[in-house]
Nucleic acid binder design. Sequence first.
DNA 1: CAAAAGTGGAGAATATTCCTCCGCTTGTTT
DNA 2: AAACAAGCGGAGGAATATTCTCCACTTTTG
Lengths: 190, 190
Amino acid sequence: MRADALRRRTAVVQAARSLIAARGSDVALDAVADAAGVGIGTLYRNFDSRAALLDAVALAILDEVHAVTQEAAQALAHSPQDAWDDYVRRLVGLELGALTAALADHAGDALARDVREAQDRALDGVGSLLAAAQGEGLVRDDLTPLELVTAVGMITRPQPEAVRRAAPDLRERMVSILLQGLRPEQRGAR
Amino acid sequence: MRADALRRRTAVVQAARSLIAARGSDVALDAVADAAGVGIGTLYRNFDSRAALLDAVALAILDEVHAVTQEAAQALAHSPQDAWDDYVRRLVGLELGALTAALADHAGDALARDVREAQDRALDGVGSLLAAAQGEGLVRDDLTPLELVTAVGMITRPQPEAVRRAAPDLRERMVSILLQGLRPEQRGAR
DNA sequence: CAAAAGTGGAGAATATTCCTCCGCTTGTTT
DNA sequence: AAACAAGCGGAGGAATATTCTCCACTTTTG
């Protein structure tokens, strides 16, 4: 594959990813091509269909989740609390909301094999890290990997413009609430 | 207005509300009419346009938020902790995700006056309740009404079918995380 | 029971979105 | 630096949606 072609392919996936994160998975493919600075033809040469593009977006995100998780596993040994908080913040930075949206669009049809594999790999990794964090007493024992990823996905879904304007620091506030919500239940709490 | 006409109008709003809550605000109006058990003509007689219907949905939800909040204000005096938890759970039951979606669709154009008024009324009410709850030490002091409503909205956004199947109790789990996240920060916590 | 109010849903009109095609450009290889 | 392969852009036709109108018929209500 030609180097410039690969560059363009990546640009398309990234553009799709941010547009989906910002405005939901129903972006027009023309808009994606525009945002990526390529022609619509290039988009279609790389992705046979809208579904193929969404799969590529999901795959990219899942791979990054896995990578970030592996790094965090290293850091956890060093300074547990900081590493955990940092990990969650990094997950938030990955636009998991776009992942949710991309996968949701699949509704009926089955997931492509490679996406499913990436998903399993990512969730496995998160599971290990989570177990370690739980062992350290950093996180509630009943939390599952899927719940963690979904929770992060929820707080990164697109918000109405009016809300974004009224509370520009909303995401950071939600992260703070989430981090506290994930902590082990305090004794005496219901 | 004829009694049966009003019944149908309400049915349309409710149908739109649940469809939006379940699958996002881009539902086809035909589908809404179907779900409400009315003809598409009836839908259009009551709502001049898609935007008008979305406004009606937002209005209905906002009114219920206000009502639930008023009730909770009563209950709070009686047994604070239970009343607060119950209040949050009730908010979750109102499908605030549909509200977020309905408002998000407005993107550019300004909000209808009555929707804005209902929104102000609802947020004011939530503000009072929140202040009381904070006074009781039930809730973090830095939480704003908009943040509370948005957070509840986030955990009620539609999830991919695969996630719903893998974790049927997801919503309840998220409520549990949210409730803990909203509590006053524990001393020593970062 | 009659008038007024309301109904449904086929289908025209309108938007959108998808995707193909091919003359031209750019990268790569020798 | 030439020649070939690989890749590009984007106009525009095809395929869907989606919106909304219209009016003969049904239901409510005084």
